[in-house]
Design a protein around this nucleic acid. Structure first.
Lengths: 144, 144
DNA sequence: GGAAAATTGGATGTCAAGATCCTATTTAGC
DNA sequence: GCTAAATAGGATCTTGACATCCAATTTTCC
């Protein structure tokens, strides 16, 4: 239900949120197990919406454009593939104004719950979660 | 975030939940504004999991295989495109057992909320919703 | 200024979802 | 049994998501 690209993007930003220096896309790709060439495109997209910042040339790479406390899961998801809330009748009929029918209102409520959950979770919260499994599952807690 | 096919399937079952007689796929397609040939395939899938029942020949068509109180949104969604809960680390690492990391646990929690919401909504509830917009937006309340 | 290191972006390939069409099969009614 | 009405299912087409590759551009360091 969540696209592969969203998953890739989230892995990358979580990985970067833990780092103080910029990281090359190759490093990020290896750590997050994402195809490097494809990850490159995904990261470009995240740069355009200013979640990431890129630096070319020697010593360059990718880094967060904001503090981890200022980036939410929703920011990342929306940059890649918006949740797609239902804001008007998908059948296109306007007979009932903006009010959704029972079916679509319930579907949209579910989407709203997801959106809220994502909006209320920052990268900082993910990193500080007292979960014995470290983010991305396979990283020892080597920060830097 | 919800696939087009899920939307089509839900429209069809909600439409049928309101009918006592079986409906031809062409009628369903027209009412729900879904491409007829494609809807046919979707309905076939719903028959296989026994959400719908089909009847060939003159006077045949599609009808619910169960009472509207016994079919949930989740039943329909799962028949077409399962929610895709995250039950193990997407990176494939097993170092931390079955425990998800902070990122994936939060993503899975969001999926769980959707799953619960869908499991707790039957077609009967959708139909009896006191919403001024009738289901599928454009149907007058002509039952039959 | 030249070489090496990195991202950028265009072109292209692959595969599954979405969609269509046509024939086969089943069924009701005569 | 024959015919008309309906679904079943196979073959095919189209489009977008996912993915790869390579040349162009920017940047640092010497």
């Amino acid at each position: 239900m969540l696209s592969q690209t969203v998953e890739y993007a989230l892995r990358a930003v979580v990985f970067l949120a833990d780092k103080v220096e910029s990281q090359k896309t190759g490093q990020i790709a290896e750590a997050t197990k994402v195809p490097p060439a494809y990850l490159s495109k995904v990261l470009q997209g995240l740069c355009r919406v200013e979640i990431l910042r890129s630096q070319r040339g020697i010593g360059g790479g990718m880094s967060l454009a904001k503090k981890p406390e200022e980036i939410t899961i929703l920011d990342v998801v929306n940059a890649v593939e918006p949740i797609g809330r239902i804001d008007s009748c998908p059948l296109g009929l306007k007979e009932h104004g903006v009010q959704l029918c029972a079916l679509h209102r319930r579907l949209d409520n579910a989407l709203a719950m997801v959106e809220d959950a994502f909006r209320n979770t920052t990268l900082a919260e993910v990193l500080s979660d007292p979960n014995p499994s470290v983010p991305l599952c396979d990283f020892p807690s080597a920060h830097g």
